[in-house]
């Protein structure tokens, strides 16, 4: 489709390999239960977001789309954050 003209072939296998390695790192990290929980959670969530971004950017071709498609795709994310954070604030009292 039209995105094909402008993009150089992304390295799909390289991304796959990266995802694989990151998954293995994640599972490994999860077993390090003696580390502080907060650190573990931060690392794991960071890795997960990294992986998710890779999929969205390269496999879903967001990296090669126009800005408006990217905006459309990411529009719900602020709402999701507002919901979860808003409710979690309840516990902050």
């Amino acid at each position: 489709m039209e995105s094909a003209e402008q993009k150089q072939q992304p390295r799909y296998y390289f991304i796959w390999f990266l995802l694989l390695v990151l998954t293995m790192v994640e599972v490994g990290v999860a077993y390090l239960s003696h580390l502080p929980r907060t650190l573990l959670i931060l690392v794991l969530v960071g890795l997960a977001i990294w992986k998710a971004t890779l999929v969205a950017m390269y496999y879903m071709h967001l990296k090669f789309e126009r800005l408006r498609v990217i905006l459309l795709a990411t529009a719900p994310i602020p709402l999701a954050i507002i919901l979860v954070l808003g409710v979690l604030l309840e516990y902050a009292q």
Binding site: V27, A30, L44
Partner: peptide, 27 residues
């Protein structure tokens, strides 16, 4: 177009699983 559209759905489902695997199984 059919291949691209089903692909988008498929990758999205994969993406959700990446998040689920981490927060349900690993955290």
């Amino acid at each position: 177009g059919g291949v691209e559209v089903i692909g988008l759905y498929w990758h999205f489902v994969d993406l959700v699983w990446i998040l689920l695997f981490t927060i349900v199984y690993l955290i």
